[in-house]
């Protein structure tokens, strides 16, 4: 028996919109810890890891660990039928091949049940060890989205370099090149507007902008994005989900052939 009630149902809607273009099918795992997902894109270059902790739900019942194979496009279609203020409850049962999304209006005067078919998905689970990163950049998520969009109109790849001067985003394309530098800037009044750079050593890595632009679909989930870089690891682009958990995107770099 599974019953997860989320007062702020819009969070789930936003999560789906953020990941459905990157990953088409995935297993949602439900355990005492929370509702989670780990899935790679079809070319095994990017990975999304989502965690919505059980404490973040208004009601969380998960009698035993359950994995639900879901077509994210279909789930997104169903969640789009929930109003922006609706409370969403996810209901499932062992041994059934469906999951039900229940939408309740704030005033409880409209209740909708959408039942969706589950599917069997053979998914690979990657072990992602905790790691030390050479540089961690925290910046306004909207600023990062703007940079990725702007650079995406010039080139296909972005070189992200962190030095003590700041973080530099560089691209080159047929029409020319672009270079954007963000310096550390701390805003006491509005910490979410700050750009904070923690650097152990300078690092410079190249990534496909197509993926970065896909990650920025999570911008509505958090005002701040954290970009963790190490020459030994895929970059991690993390959006915290208030009080609940996170959505993390991992992206393998490009290297000179």
């Amino acid at each position: 028996m599974l019953e997860l009630r989320l007062i702020q149902g819009s969070l789930l809607k936003k999560v789906l919109e953020a990941i459905k273009d990157l990953v088409t099918e995935a297993n949602f795992d439900c355990s005492a810890t929370g509702f989670s997902l780990q899935a790679m894109d079809s070319s095994h270059v990017a990975l999304v890891a989502l965690l919505l902790r059980s404490e973040g739900f208004d009601h969380y019942r998960c009698d035993r660990n359950l994995s639900m194979g879901i077509n994210l496009n279909n789930m997104s279609k169903m969640l789009r039928c929930a109003g922006p203020e609706d409370i969403i409850t996810i209901k499932g049962d062992d041994g059934t091949d469906t999951v039900t999304f229940m939408f309740e209006s704030q005033k409880q005067d409209k209740i909708s049940d959408f039942e969706m078919k589950l599917m069997d998905i053979d998914s690979e689970h990657l072990g992602i060890p905790d790691a030390e990163y050479q540089a961690i950049v925290r910046m306004p998520s909207a600023e990062f989205a703007r940079i990725c969009k702007d650079l995406g109109s010039i080139g296909d790849t972005v070189v992200i370099s962190v030095t003590k001067e700041g973080v530099k985003f560089f691209t080159r394309g047929d029409v020319g090149s672009a270079n954007i530098v963000c310096r550390q800037n701390t805003s006491v009044d509005k910490p979410e507007d700050s750009t904070v750079i923690e650097m152990n050593e300078p690092v410079s890595l190249t990534f496909a902008l197509r993926y970065m632009n896909s990650f920025t679909k999570a911008t509505t989930l958090s005002e701040v994005v954290t970009i963790s870089l190490s020459s030994e690891l895929p970059v991690v682009v993390e959006y915290k989900i208030a009080e609940m958990g996170y959505i993390r995107f991992y992206l393998a770099p490009k290297i000179e052939d």
């Binding site: 095994h44 270059v45 990657l126 072990g127 992602i128 393998a252 770099p253 052939d257």
Partner: peptide, 14 residues
């Protein structure tokens, strides 16, 4: 053109 690495270059299946 630079070579796109995969996640398998870094992470292993658990």
């Amino acid at each position: 053109t630079p070579l796109q690495l995969q996640l398998y270059n870094y992470f292993i299946q658990s």
